[in-house]
Amino acid sequence: MNHGRRILWTRVAFIAGLVGLLEALCRLHVIKPLTMIAPSQMVQELIALAWSGELAEPALQTFIEVGASFLFSVTVGGALGAVVHALPRVRRTLDPLLASWYAVPFFVFYPLLVALLGLNVLPLIAIGVVFATPAMMLSTLAGLDRVPRVMHKVARVHRLSQLQEVRLITLPSAAPHLFTGLKLSFAYSFIGIIAGEFILSGGGLGYGISYAYESFETPKMYALMLFVLLIALVANGVLHVWDRRLARRRGLA
C-alpha cells in the first residue's frame, strides 16, 4: 500500500472510529437523547427529510446564495486584486484596511445589511461577498507578487501581446495562489451565508437549524447540521482533489 493510500485510510478509520464512539455513547445514553441523537439516527432523519421534500427548498436557497456570492467574490475580488496590484499607491492606502479586514467581527453588521437591503436573499449574498471578496483579492495580490520578474522578460523575448502574456505566463504562474483564493472564497461565502441565515432568520439551511432548535425538533436540527457538515466535507474534498491535480501538473505531488 503506498504512502498516500495509507494516510487516506488512516484518516477514514479515524473518522469512522470517532463516529462509532459517538454512536455508542448515544446508544448507551451516556449522551442524553435530548442533547444529541446518534449519528445513525441523524442519517435516517436526513434521508427522511430529503424524501419528504422538506429539504429541497432551504437547500436550494442556500446553494443559490453561496453560488452567487462565490462567483461574485471570485470575479470582483480577482479583478480588484489585479487593478490594485498595478497601482502601488492605492495598494499602500488599502493595506491597513485589508490587513484588519478579518479582525472585524462582521456578524455585528448583519442587522445593518438587512436595514439596507431588506430581508431577502440579497443581504445574505452581500454578507458572503463582504466576507469572501477580500480573501480573493489578497490571494490575487499574493499570486501576482510571486510571479518571478524573469517571467515578464520571457514574455517579451517571445514578443507576446499583453493579453497573451496574461493568459500564457501570468495566470498559470499565479495559479496556485489564485486557487487558494478560490478555496477561501468558497469557505467564507459558505460560513458567512449560513451564519447570516441563522442569525437573521433569513431562510435557507441556517434558518432551518435555528428554527428546529427553537421548536425543540432536535432530530431535525441534527439532520440539518449533518447536511451542512456533509456539504463542507464534499466541497473540501473536491477542492482538495483538484488542488492535488494542479500540483501534479507541476510535478509536485
Binding site: 494516510i7 473518522i15 468558497f186 449560513i194 451542512v228 457538515l229 463542507a232 473540501n236
Partner: peptide, 28 residues
C-alpha cells in the same frame, strides 16, 4: 504522518459555519 492524516480534517472543520453548532454548545 499524524499531521498528514489530520490536516484535511482540520481544513474541513475550519470551513464549517460554526454558528450552526451553537445549539449543541448550549445543550452541552
Amino acid at each position: 504522518f499524524a499531521g498528514d492524516v489530520a490536516e484535511p480534517i482540520l481544513g474541513s472543520l475550519y470551513t464549517i459555519p460554526k454558528v450552526t453548532l451553537y445549539p449543541l454548545m448550549l445543550l452541552v
